[in-house]
Amino acid sequence: MGNRSRIVLLALGIFFVGVAVMARFYAYPTLAVAPPDQVAHTTSTTTQDGTVFVVATQKETQLPLTSTRTVRGDVVAAEKIGQALNREVVVFDTAVVTDDDPAYAFPSEDDAKRDDKAPLSFVQERVVLDAHTGEAIAWDPDKATDNSGEYITTTLKTEDRKRPGDQVFKDGHQGLVLKFPFGTEKKTYKFWDSTLRQAFPIEFKGETELLGLKVYKFVQEIPKSEVPQAAKLKVPGALIGEKGQPSVVVDRSYQNTRTLWIEPVTGAIIKGEEKQLATIDYNGEVKITATDATIGYDDATVKKNVEGATVDGKAEGGYAEKASQLNLIGFWVPLLSLILGLLLLGLAGFLSLRPKARRAA
């Protein structure tokens, strides 16, 4: 084989090694980021009626519950905060509404009975996350003069938003919040709990499949804890058997077993389930069951997360395909390109040495 052929082999070998390096260390990190304009909807339901304390009737009641979560990315805020922190971030606004009406919609601002039509539970948050790992990033509220900073609230009133430094939101969001890292590992992470305003360990418990997609199962055990309150919680004495007192100060306790099924390549949450127990306690004794329910993603949400679907004209979910694409770019393309490149370089080197060996003989 002539010098020209050896040069071609050498060039092709260098090319494929370069492809391997570019795919693994440039293309993959570029693609393995959470999209800043992401919009996602999830629906969770109880498999059987949950127990909730209905304020209007002042009674514990068995009700079917539906919880809907909406997540929307704020591209403008992500760009501003990313530039200020000199790192890739995403900013998401989330709202979780839980009610016995699966089609619950907030009443209009001018509705005279707006307060009477509040859902059983409502939590709204703005979180700033690392675009690669999904971990919460502290954002100084002093810099967030345009309200781009993180907050948490249980009402629709802007003045009720709790920001980092507040009594019930001291350190802001912590740990993982809406997703796991790209390339999720089989280890223990810390995952955010909105009720207690802090992150707790969530442990890897094994592999399984959902609709043919490999997922990692993680379980988080949150022990019974007192829920932080901005002001002391008071209830009528008669409600807890203290008829001689017009009102008494009580504690609200909460515990939860949260199970998440994660697609490991993308870090996406494919399915979630929670077994919640919240009570009203007086002098260390449980007096009222505020919530006792097991609620988890419905089948349609899991299917959408795996196979993908279009919601309001925008594609959501489809993590089976996204994982395949990332796995191709991050693993198979670099591996095969590196092997082919090294083989071509080895062949070019072998052919270069052959004439010398013949002359020596």
Results as ranks from 00 to 15, higher is better:
T46A: 05
D49P: 09
L120V: 13
A199M: 03
I137K: 00
I288Y: 01
W261Y: 13
V17K: 02
Q62R: 12
W261I: 11
F16S: 13
L176K: 00
G18C: 13
D160M: 03
L340A: 15
Q245M: 01
Q58I: 01
L344H: 02
R87D: 11
T184H: 00
Q83H: 13
T294C: 03
K304Y: 09
K179T: 14
R163Y: 13
K190M: 12
F122S: 09
E285Y: 06
I329D: 03
T289S: 04
R6T: 10
S108V: 12
S44G: 11
Q174R: 08
R126F: 06
F122I: 03
L338M: 13
I137R: 01
A360L: 14
S324Y: 06
D251I: 08
W139T: 12
S5Q: 12
E221C: 07
T51M: 06
D298F: 08
V249G: 01
I240T: 02
I7L: 15
G267K: 00
V97G: 02
D312R: 04
Y254C: 07
Y28C: 01
L326V: 01
V71W: 00
R358K: 10
T47H: 08
D111A: 13
R359Q: 12
A320W: 02
D100P: 05
W192V: 08
G73L: 01
L260V: 15
P119G: 10
Q245S: 07
H173K: 00
T289N: 14
Y189S: 06
T154L: 02
L336F: 09
N327D: 13
K113C: 11
P334A: 09
Y282M: 00
D116H: 08
G346K: 05
K287D: 02
F191Q: 07
L347I: 14
E159I: 10
K59M: 00
K234I: 09
A95W: 06
K224W: 08
L345D: 09
V90D: 08
V33F: 07
V333C: 07
